[in-house]
Amino acid sequence: MQNDWDLYEVFIRSKRGLSHKHVGSVHAADGRMAIENARDLYTRRSEGESIWVIPAKEIVASDPAEGDALFGPAQDKVYRHPTFYDIPKEVGKM
C-alpha cells in the first residue's frame, strides 16, 4: 500500500513572522492526507502553527556534480561579504 503513496516534504512555521522550515517528510495519497499526517507527526508537541506540504517529486534540485560550476565562483569573491564595513554600534547584531 505504502508503495503507491507519494512522498511529501513537510515545512512547518513555528511562529507567526518566521518562515516555514523543512522538518522532514511523510507518505500520503494526497495533499490533504499529507497535511494530516504531518500534523500528527510534526506538530503534536506544539511545534507549529502552519504547515506546508510539497510533493517531493515536484522539487527541482541542483545537481551535486555541478557543484563547482554553481558554487565555486563565489568562493574567491570576498568583497561580496560585508566584512569590510564598520557597523555602527547602534545597529546591533546583524
Binding site: 507518505h27 494530516e36 500528527d40
Partner: peptide
C-alpha cells in the same frame, strides 16, 4: 496501522 504515518495518527 496501514503505514507508519497512520500508526501515529491512530495513536493520536
Amino acid at each position: 496501522g496501514p503505514n507508519l504515518e497512520l500508526d501515529i495518527a491512530a495513536s493520536n
